[in-house]
Design a protein around this nucleic acid. Structure first.
Length: 683
DNA sequence: GAGCACTGC
């Protein structure tokens, strides 16, 4: 107790003191066991520091960010919000949260638990691996004083003072605890990535900070948009930390390339034949292109003959099974014979290698300047993937991949002029490229009523917001004044798109919630049908099962009945299809006399995706996904009946206000037929 | 008759 108080007084550089005392303690032969006054005792768990702690500490002190520790702590003390900019290798993600811990008071009067410091990450793996590393650096067990929290796994306890978590998880926590009262400091890391969750947290935290003068915010980012962040956060002080990367020489092409794939392969061959040893990383856009390129490269290398070293070509994309992904970490092949030319590893990758995965040993990067990016068309409510030019920031990040272990080279397959004039500085933040129905539901649940005046760092197009409000209104999640309904409140608790959440919440009314739970879980994950060879992918099934369990817990919490129609009943499948329609009535397509499907209201010509399981072309279908590839496809489809449409979604299919089309005429006929039948039964 | 940029709750 006394010791803890004392240590809190010397807030700054506690660790350095410890280290000096450690040496002294050893020479003087003091007991190492903690007795309440011994500086060798770990402040957080009262245990003596291990030898390893001191070893790691020495290494930590060589990180660039340690040179600015004092400066950082002073700035943190004096300001509520702070922006910290640092490139790869500065050590900010692991060290800054530890500096913060030294400088803030986390004690809560009731002593049962402590306030926490949160540090967000855009990806689960990062939250997990960084927290493990930091627990080791602090000489505590993971899940105790230092923990992490991601979907499906909360590895933290009442003792936790530092928690790494995904930005999405923090947003979820905010839904239950709008002022984020368990935190004393929130660190938003990798803010430059501008994920949807981070962008929402920006606006939300700005509000929260006004109501919580004791809360502090640290925004950490790569360099490019620092001034923009500063402007957004009322001119908060900006601190720059140098990175630790080796220099990377950039080469541009003299003339624009017509075929980037061909140019990329040509460049690989030139590097292989003319450049000193070192592995190569090539950025392409998708699975098919990558597999194709890998074959071509292997073939050309074989044709080049034994004068050049052996080559190992490795594809990399996120849907590749983990065992195959591991191959990127294999060493380059050894020379074919003793004294022969050295081998080379060539990794052909999508954008995963730009942010999510780092491969050491890369010396050459080839950047054709393209990636697949999500775009959203609010008019027809369709998200699709489009091969588009990358941004300057992205090009910068790619080239940096060449300089992690030694000086490197980056070959950009476009002209310098094109880089300067054609590439936009930043990739558009996700919030400007997405369907916002789910985001709007989250914001409403967070108590943000006035979306038009919500302080987005980059406000989405008004039409996108209008579309989202409209969808939520049709689903019954918002009333006509835009207020969250009871149904909407329950829907917002599910980590699903609003349509799916609606389908699930109403499924007990159709006596099939068990089945809809399974369907939702399967649709939320990668498709296990994609595994002809193994029949069923156990990993995907396990993942779906995880989701299902989580959804069941939420159902139980809201007293939603878990039920099934008798499997032998005629209504078994009918009930399931009706429940699906109750969520997906805005995604209906009608088979026209011409033989084509037309989406209802939006009137887009669409084709059933060939992966569908129907043995005929039903007149009405609902679809889960609209994909724009070689044609407009609707994927994962189920047939429904016109009568159900009228019963289940009368407001959306209000024929008085319906665009003139074949579907309308068919529905009108159905209506008349029903009226006649009703009359007849009366008589 | 075609084929999943990448994340996240």
């Amino acid at each position: 107790m006394g010791m803890e108080r004392k240590r809190k007084v010397s807030l700054f550089d506690v660790v350095d003191d410890t280290c000096v005392s450690a040496k002294r303690a050893k020479t003087n032969g003091f007991a190492v066991h903690g007795n309440g006054t011994n500086p060798l005792v770990n402040r957080w768990n009262g245990r003596p520091y291990s030898k390893r702690y001191l070893e790691i500490l020495e290494k930590r002190k060589t990180l660039p960010v340690w040179h600015q520790k004092e400066e950082f702590l002073q700035a943190l003390k004096a300001n509520q919000t702070l922006i910290l900019v640092g490139e790869t290798g500065s050590g900010k993600t692991t060290q800054i949260p530890q500096f913060v811990l030294e400088a803030v008071e986390l004690e809560i009067p009731d002593k049962r638990r402590k306030f926490m410091v949160a540090c967000t990450q855009p990806r689960r793996v990062a939250a997990m691996s960084v927290s493990r590393r930091v627990a080791e650096e602090m000489d505590v067990n993971i899940g105790e004083e230092v923990g992490y929290s991601i979907r499906f796994e909360d590895c933290s306890s009442s003792r936790t003072v530092l928690k790494y978590l995904t930005d999405g998880t923090l947003l979820r926590e905010a839904m239950a605890d709008p002022l984020l009262e368990r935190y004393k400091v929130i660190i938003l890391d990798e803010a430059h990535e501008r994920t949807l969750a981070t962008d929402v947290l920006f606006g939300l935290l700005k509000e929260v900070l006004k109501n919580r003068p004791d809360l502090k915010l640290v925004v950490m980012s790569a360099t490019l948009e620092a001034e923009k962040f500063q402007g957004y956060f009322y001119g908060a002080p900006l601190m720059k930390v140098p990175g630790r990367l080796h220099p990377v020489e950039i080469f541009y092409t003299e003339e624009p390339e017509r075929d980037y794939l061909e140019a990329a392969i040509r460049t690989i061959m030139q590097i292989h034949m003319c450049e000193p040893p070192g592995d190569v990383l090539v950025f392409l856009t998708g699975e098919e292109e990558i597999e194709d390129a890998c074959k071509k490269i292997s073939k050309q290398v074989a044709n080049a003959g034994d004068v050049y070293g052996p080559v190992k070509v490795v594809p990399l994309y996120s849907t590749l099974p983990p065992a195959m992904q591991q191959k990127i970490f294999d060493p380059a092949p050894p020379p074919v014979m003793v004294g022969g030319p050295p081998g080379r590893k060539i990794v052909v990758s999508t954008n995963v290698a730009e942010t999510s995965l780092t491969i050491d040993g890369i010396v050459y990067v080839i950047d054709p300047g393209f990636s697949k990016q999500k775009v959203y068309n609010p008019r027809i409510r369709v998200e699709s993937l489009l091969v588009s030019p990358i941004s300057k920031a992205s090009a910068h990040q790619r080239s940096g991949r060449a300089g992690r272990t030694q000086p490197g080279k980056c070959f950009r397959l476009y002209t310098e002029k094109s880089f300067n004039n054609d590439l936009q500085p930043q990739t558009y933040p996700e919030i400007l490229r997405s369907n916002l129905a789910n985001t709007v539901l989250t914001l409403k649940k967070l108590g943000i009523d006035d979306l038009v005046h919500f302080d987005f760092m980059d406000p989405p197009a008004p039409e996108t917001l209008m579309r989202a409000l409209e969808v939520l209104n049709y689903l019954g999640a918002l009333d006509d004044d835009g207020n969250l309904t009871k149904l909407g409140e329950i829907m917002s608790e599910f980590p699903l798109d609003p349509q799916m959440a609606k389908m699930l919440v109403v499924s007990p009314e159709f006596n099939c919630s068990n089945e809809i739970l399974s369907i939702s879980a399967m649709l939320s994950n990668e498709d296990p049908a994609w595994c002809y060879e193994n029949f069923i992918n156990p990993r995907a099934m396990k993942a779906a099962d995880n989701v299902r369990e989580q959804l069941v817990r939420i159902m139980v919490r809201y007293n939603l009945k878990l039920c099934s129609t008798d499997f032998n009943s005629h209504d078994y499948y009918i009930n399931i299809r009706k429940a699906m329609l109750a969520g997906y009535f805005m995604q209906v397509a009608h088979l026209e006399r011409t033989g084509h499907y037309l989406t209802v209201k939006d009137k887009q010509v669409v084709h059933l995706h060939p992966s569908n399981c129907l043995n005929r072309k039903p007149e009405w279908v609902i679809y889960n996904e609209f994909v724009l590839t070689s044609r407009n496809f609707i994927r994962t489809v189920t047939d429904v009946h016109g009568e159900w449409i009228l019963d289940i979604a009368p407001r959306y299919f209000d024929l008085e206000n319906f665009p003139q089309c074949e579907a309308k005429r068919v529905l009108e006929k159905l209506c008349k037929k029903r009226e006649r039948e009703r009359e007849e039964s009366k008589n």
